[in-house]
Design a protein around this nucleic acid. Structure first.
Lengths: 140, 140
DNA sequence: CCGTATCCAAAACGATACTG
DNA sequence: CAGTATCGTTTTGGATACGG
């Protein structure tokens, strides 16, 4: 028969078997550009056009911007509005949920500002203090 | 000459050029097993041995557990202690920074519990409500 | 202007076999 | 017990060309 410990363990395990919301949220944010697109839209505090985003982000390719925006739209974080003009005009803006995610990423950023230097230092220690490039730690 | 807007834009861009701490933190958490290993060590609230972790996590391979622990150790989140016995005994525990990351992931989990269902619903809407598998949304 | 489609390289992940 | 080494698959990101 299972002990009380086994039951707790099974409960704990169940959270990882699939559908773990923490994982879902991290999947949204963990790809290369999502954080930056979100930040750009948050900064704009209003709708932005496709090429406006592209110029702001600088070195993102069309493919990756399209893909990132599509994912964010799918996840309900960004709203896409198409104006049927010629040439076409497409605007992107944060949804309510997107604004809320922005608060979450801001919290992560706050934590990062104070603790990422410790992570970077730990890495330098682990890597054997050989030829460490000068890392700017004052950014967000 | 640059306008005030251009200067703000350049400042904003500078945060993405490299060394963005938010990115650093997400890199730590975004891989497949880090969150779960962290959670296991947090739950144990003390040192755990390699195979103890392996059994608890269930379907992780040796390779991925080794790799994940190595990364977490490199990032200063987990402390590895080797006892020179035969057979060898190796213990893993959260560092202070690891405990602190635990608080961060807990915050993400809290947000996820309340909002991941909205993300999942948005995906279902976007995907055209075709054959959605029953998703358990009450987990962490 | 706002995308798609295609191809390619690199990285993450997993299965399996072997070692002090 | 606690790993390392190797190999194959899958996923991710980027470059380029083309279309409504």
């Amino acid at each position: 028969m299972g002990t009380a410990f086994d039951q707790d363990t099974e409960q704990w395990r169940a959270r990882f078997r699939n559908g773990c919301p923490s994982r879902t949220v991290l999947e949204v944010l963990a790809n290369k550009w999502a954080l930056y697109v979100l930040s750009a839209l948050r900064r704009a505090d209003g709708p932005m056009r496709f090429n406006e985003l592209r110029r702001l982000l600088g070195d993102i390719t069309q493919k990756m911007l399209t893909q990132t925006l599509k994912n964010l739209e799918r996840d309900g974080l960004v709203a896409r509005t198409v104006y049927p003009t010629v040439p076409p005009r497409v605007e992107y803006a944060l949804t309510e949920l997107g604004v809320d995610v922005g608060r979450l990423t801001h919290a992560v950023g706050e934590w990062a500002v104070t603790h990422a230097p410790e992570i970077i230092a730990a890495r330098a220690r682990y890597d054997g203090r050989a030829s460490q490039p000068p890392v700017p730690v004052t950014m967000i």
